[in-house]
Lab assay of single mutants.
Amino acid sequence: RSTHNEMEKNRRAHLRLCLEKLKGLVPLGPESSRHTTLSLLTKAKLHIKKLE
């Protein structure tokens, strides 16, 4: 059980790190620190579409 908890903790930490990296790559506007994961991913998707 503790192994599972540790793996889950590591998974969440990795996900958080990846989202922070994404936040640095996507133009978010003036309220960049107030975005939810969903809004960050939505803006990333729109940004990628613009680049295509």
Results as ranks from 00 to 15, higher is better:
Ser32Ala: 08
His14Asn: 06
Ile48Asn: 04
Met7Phe: 07
Pro30Ala: 14
Leu40Ile: 13
Leu19Gly: 01
Pro30Glu: 09
Met7Thr: 08
Leu41Cys: 05
Thr3Glu: 11
Leu15His: 00
Thr42Gly: 11
Gly29Ala: 10
Ser2Gly: 11
His4Tyr: 04
Asn10His: 09
Leu41Arg: 01
Leu15Ser: 06
Arg11Gly: 10
His47Ala: 15
Ile48Gln: 02
Glu6Lys: 12
Lys9Trp: 04
Lys45Cys: 03
Leu51Asn: 03
Ile48Ala: 05
Lys45Asn: 06
His47Phe: 15
Cys18Asp: 00
Met7His: 11
Leu46Pro: 02
Ser2Ala: 07
Lys9His: 03
Thr36Arg: 12
Glu52Ile: 11
Leu15Thr: 05
Ile48Met: 11
Val26Phe: 06
Ser2Ile: 03
Thr37Ser: 14
Val26Met: 11
Ala44Trp: 11
Ser33Gln: 11
His35Leu: 12
Glu8Pro: 06
Lys50Ile: 04
Leu15Asn: 02
Leu28Trp: 15
Ile48Trp: 08
Lys9Gln: 07
Thr36Gln: 12
Leu41Asp: 01
Leu25Pro: 01
Glu20Gly: 07
Thr37Val: 15
Ala13His: 06
Leu40Thr: 05
Leu25Tyr: 02
His35Gln: 15
Lys23Phe: 04
Lys43Trp: 08
Met7Cys: 11
Leu28His: 08
Leu19Ile: 07
Leu17Lys: 10
Lys45Arg: 12
Leu38Ala: 09
Leu15Met: 03
Thr42His: 10
Leu22Phe: 04
Ser33Cys: 14
Glu8Ile: 10
Leu40His: 02
Arg12Asp: 02
Leu51Arg: 07
Arg34Phe: 08
Lys49Trp: 03
His4Asn: 13
Leu51Met: 04
Ala13Asn: 10
Ser2Glu: 06
Lys9Tyr: 06
Lys21Thr: 01
Thr36Cys: 13
Glu20Tyr: 01
Lys49Cys: 04
Thr3Cys: 04
His4Arg: 13
Thr42Pro: 02
Asn5Arg: 11
His4Gln: 13
Asn10Asp: 10
Leu15Cys: 01
Gly24Glu: 05
His47Glu: 05
Leu38Gln: 12
Lys45Ser: 03
Pro30Lys: 08
Thr42Trp: 04
Lys23Gln: 00
Thr36Ile: 12
Leu17Cys: 10
Lys23Trp: 03
Ile48Pro: 03
Pro27Gln: 13
Lys43Pro: 02
Arg34Asn: 07
Ala44Pro: 00
Lys43Ser: 04
Lys21Gly: 01
Ala13Ile: 01
Thr42Val: 05
Thr37Asn: 09
Pro27Arg: 15
Leu51Glu: 00
Arg12His: 12
Leu19Lys: 03
Ser39Trp: 09
Thr3Arg: 04
Asn5Phe: 07
Lys50Gly: 03
Gly24Met: 13
Ala44Leu: 08
Ser2Pro: 02
Lys43His: 04
Lys21Ser: 00
Leu19Glu: 00
Leu40Ala: 06
Lys23Ile: 02
Lys45Tyr: 03
Leu25Cys: 07
Ser33Trp: 15
Ser33Lys: 15
Met7Tyr: 03
Ala44Ile: 07
Glu20Gln: 09
Ser39Asp: 07
Thr42Cys: 09
Ser33Met: 15
Thr36Phe: 14
Lys45Glu: 00
Pro30Asn: 14
His4Leu: 14
Val26Ala: 04
Gly24Tyr: 06
Pro30Leu: 15
Ser32Tyr: 06
Leu51Phe: 05
Lys43Arg: 09
Lys9Ile: 11
His4Thr: 14
Leu15Tyr: 01
Lys49Phe: 04
Leu40Asp: 00
Leu41Lys: 01
Lys43Cys: 02
Met7Trp: 02
Leu41Ile: 14
Gly29His: 15
Val26Ser: 04
Arg11Met: 06
Arg34His: 01
Ser39Asn: 15
Thr36Leu: 13
Leu46Asp: 09
Thr42Met: 08
Glu8Ser: 05
Ala13Thr: 07
Lys50Asn: 05
Thr36Asn: 13
Arg34Tyr: 05
Leu22Trp: 01
His47Met: 15
Thr3Phe: 04
His14Leu: 12
Leu38Met: 14
Gly24Val: 08
Lys50Cys: 04
Lys23Glu: 01
Arg1Met: 15
Gly24Pro: 04
Leu15Ala: 07
Leu17Asn: 04
Lys49Asp: 00
Arg11Val: 07
Leu22Lys: 00
Arg11Phe: 12
